[in-house]
Design a protein around this nucleic acid. Sequence first.
DNA 1: CCAGTTTCATAACAACCGTTATGAAACATG
DNA 2: CATGTTTCATAACGGTTGTTATGAAACTGG
Lengths: 204, 204
Amino acid sequence: MGRPRAFDVEKALDAMLCVFWRKGYEGTSYADLTAAAGVERPALYAAFGNKEALFRSALERYVERYLDYFPAALELPTAREVAGRILHGVVDLNTRYGEHTGCLAINGALAGPDEAEPVRQALIDFRAAGQERLRQRLERAKAEGDLPPGASPEALAAFVMAVSHGIAVQAKAGVGRAMLEAVAEQALSTWPAGGAAAPASPGR
Amino acid sequence: MGRPRAFDVEKALDAMLCVFWRKGYEGTSYADLTAAAGVERPALYAAFGNKEALFRSALERYVERYLDYFPAALELPTAREVAGRILHGVVDLNTRYGEHTGCLAINGALAGPDEAEPVRQALIDFRAAGQERLRQRLERAKAEGDLPPGASPEALAAFVMAVSHGIAVQAKAGVGRAMLEAVAEQALSTWPAGGAAAPASPGR
DNA sequence: CCAGTTTCATAACAACCGTTATGAAACATG
DNA sequence: CATGTTTCATAACGGTTGTTATGAAACTGG
């Protein structure tokens, strides 16, 4: 009962996500948000809460809509393939849309005033969680002999994520896909070779 | 003649530079700036112009005060040493001060509202200029046989800068120096071996 | 010591920020 | 059709943004 919604909440969130993607959390005003969503401020407050809660909803949407390549990459058979898929996935996502290049998890809030620190910390935790998942995957690779005994899964995970972040910064600066592909390939060029063959199906 | 300055312009600029470093261009308010400089707004306007001009002055100061390692790195004899010095210089600078980690050229303005686009573009140009200087240095290295004929100075320069940016993002997120050193080393492990020996003094 | 000049802080400016109180509009149920 | 409930836009809230007009304070020159 009651008056029905006059706007599509999901579509509005998708649209606002793109604004956050382009302008970041602090750089996005409610004037931007209402223009993108097509409804006025009170409707957004009723549907999503305040600006911080709205941004967190946008981040969740970002994950399920654009970051599916990441868990898929983790399931590839070799560590080298995992890293390659991640880096090329980053290049693809960060250069796919001309209006909002780069990565929401970095554009969203890197530096800013003290009041925005909760959001900044949320993005830090978010990125760290991804890095941790990659580290565990590389740990497994090392146990399987897919990485040499001297390799450090923690350092390799940090390296892959750092290159990803660097690619995101460059993409936001307007660097084209071809150049960033070359950056990814350079990063992959000396991936440590494992002593064993393919871990899951060694005989294939 | 006239009333003399009651504050040290250079010290004020140094102090405000640190604020921009920590909070970025948009995230820094005049309340922050006056608190750091120790003088009120009109004094800053008289000495530096408006906020954008003030930020540009801070960026210049940043270069001459913190980025001296970069031109020094370009003068090292081999491309590998150049890249190594740059990456380790980045790690050092980005983790040296706990109050303002990361890099001003990235923290300053990555994403933001449309009004701040001139500042964003200035930082993009600034970073691109550094990358171009590195590219020219690597071009020379290739001509000297310090890099293999198949190597791409443009891609290698983009790679080194991308890793630098990634390190800056991680440093801003609180990642420690040791881990970032490992990232830099992993990046350097991908460096292509040159065909010739040391270029300038091959017999040494 | 007075006139001229430069620099300073106080205080105000309009514009915008995120947030919310108010009341009209649109539905389901009785 | 009236009642209750939910959602909407209008409009305002206090606070902060970058910028500047005003006038007092501090110096050098004559």
